[in-house]
Write a protein that binds this DNA or RNA. Structure first.
Length: 465
RNA sequence: UCCCCGAUAGCUCAAUGGUAGAGCGAGCGGCUGUUAACCGCUAGGUUCCAGGUUCGAGUCCUGGUCGGGGAGCCA
């Protein structure tokens, strides 16, 4: 008897003899001499209906005691369902209990609605629910689609380091990595500081906040590269859009400018949205129905719309002339707030908008100076529904300009030795962007809290499981 | 980190300062090719923690812990 996934069984021919293995969602008994068991194994959104009749040897002893969460194996034949709601069902010839629920009365994820807040407290069981099973599958498919897109377009995946010794990337607080004894660290001669020379790497080390600077080096050799891995921010920010540990996709392309960068972002987003709607149709339908109405139409709208490029300066003028009352005033030189971004992409244009050429004072040192000496070649991709999804830039490839920017921002040049070397030995215009993976998952599922878009969320004070 | 809100049964929530309640889930029974079924019965509580006010506190006050929403920061 062939062991099969529920997903395949639901599509298989009537008459097939199969074995299915999974967990019980619900059990309903009929005194006509049978029980209906909804069995799921995570292979797809839908469970399959198992029909267990009283002639099973363990019907009284075990089947009638199955509750939500029990693990079972079922041998049987796929038959046309006599009831409504499903094409086929599994008529059981044998049912083996693999793992019972110890105390059904206190099973934390019973067959009822639970709040997302509660399920975060039982993160080891939340994948058994519709929403988090679907989230996990969508997450997988998005990651797969991202790799596929890059593979199809000649990119190489570069594994940038998790541990770095650069403490001057300027992207928030870092988590320290150390093997020193926290209770009794070695001190410098004057006893005023910890002597980091004694630490594992001979200097201070941290968890990475971005793979960008590293991936630029491979970009300037392999031409088209990307990173896809975890990043860490020790910011004490407690919001529905921030995590201490999150995954980021950072492509980097050589011999390319900001327009090429925007085109890449557009191509990537459209590809992964389309792939998701094709390959996770059942999960997408669930999110569209139960989490955010109109989700699928929103994604289709992005797929069908050209992305509009809009210089920051024009964006500010549009916002100022909009007559719209914003909580924060709009003026040239300050960063766009979320409400401004939403207005531009939702009301002003109703299409994805790529805002480019931001004032240099609000952007990072490595972004390429424009000829006006006031703006840099940075871009934010704004999409209807959430606002900013991607941030990127053309990188400063001219060493003298880069050095001037480092000086201007008070950053130590000696910390950027290898980064500056790239500009001395065959420098080339290049560009890239960062896409927060969990924010992409949020956008594709409608989930409102980023902690529900990752299997095991890490946030200030939260690292159980 | 700042502002606001909250914490009562396994879960979701009620309860004017005066005997702690319901729905779901669970157990038992009934009924039915059922669809998060339906009907009945039963069990289930240190009302987040520590103080305080009061004849009396789930309720009011102070402090703490945890959670949620918003802001800042960003991806």
């Amino acid at each position: 008897m062939a062991s099969m996934r529920v997903k395949d069984a639901l599509a298989a021919d009537v008459g097939s003899a199969v074995t299915l293995k999974g967990w019980v969602r619900t059990r309903r008994d009929s005194k006509a001499g049978l029980s209906f068991i909804q069995l799921h194994d995570g292979s797809c959104f839908d469970p399959i209906q198992v029909v267990a009749k009283t002639d099973l040897s363990n019907y009284e002893a075990e089947v009638l005691h199955l509750t939500t969460g029990c693990a079972i194996e079922v041998d049987g034949e796929l038959v046309e369902s006599k009831g409504k709601g499903q094409r086929v069902e599994l008529l059981a010839s044998a049912l083996r209990v693999v793992g019972m629920v110890e105390d059904p009365d206190t099973y934390p994820a019973s067959a009822k609605r639970h709040s997302f807040e509660y399920l975060r407290e039982v993160a080891h069981l939340r994948p058994r629910t519709n929403t988090f099973g679907a989230m996990a599958r969508v997450r997988h498919r998005l990651a797969y689609a991202i790799h596929s897109y890059f593979e199809n377009n000649g990119f190489y995946w570069v594994h940038t380091p998790i541990i770095t010794t650069s403490d001057a990337e300027g992207a928030g607080h870092l988590f320290r990595v150390s093997t020193l004894d926290a209770m009794n660290p070695p001190l410098t001669e004057d006893k005023q500081n910890v002597d980091w020379h004694e630490d594992f790497f001979g200097k201070q080390s941290f968890l990475t906040v971005s793979g960008q600077l590293n991936v630029e080096t491979y970009c300037c050799a392999l031409s088209r590269v990307y990173t896809f891995g975890p990043t860490f921010r020790a910011e004490n920010s407690n919001t529905s859009r921030h995590l201490a540990e999150f995954w980021m996709i950072e492509p980097e392309i050589a011999f390319a400018d900001l327009a090429d960068n925007a085109k890449l972002a557009e191509g990537l987003l459209k590809y992964v949205f389309d792939d998701l709607l094709t390959h996770c149709a059942d999960d997408a339908a669930f999110f569209d129905q139960r989490i955010e109405k109109g989700l699928i139409d929103r994604l289709k709208h992005v797929i069908a719309s050209p992305f509009r490029t809009l210089p920051y300066t024009e964006a500010v003028e549009i916002l100022q002339k909009s007559g719209k009352k914003f909580e924060f005033p709009v003026e040239w030189g300050s960063d766009l707030q979320s409400e401004h971004e939403r207005y531009l992409t939702e009301e002003a244009f109703n299409q994805p908008v790529v805002v480019v050429d931001y004032p240099k004072d609000i952007k990072a040192f490595y972004m390429r100076m424009n000829d006006d000496q006031k703006t840099v070649a940075a871009m934010d991709v704004l999409v209807p529904g959430v606002g900013e999804l991607i941030g990127g830039s053309q990188r400063e490839e001219r060493l003298d300009v880069l050095d001037a920017r480092l000086d201007e921002m008070g950053l130590p040049k000696d910390e950027y030795g290898w980064y500056r070397d790239l500009r001395r030995y065959g420098t080339v215009p290049h560009a890239g962007f960062g896409l927060g993976f969990e924010r992409l998952v949020m956008y594709c599922t409608g989930l409102q809290n980023i902690r529900d878009a990752i299997p095991f969320p890490r946030a200030p004070g939260q690292a159980a499981f």
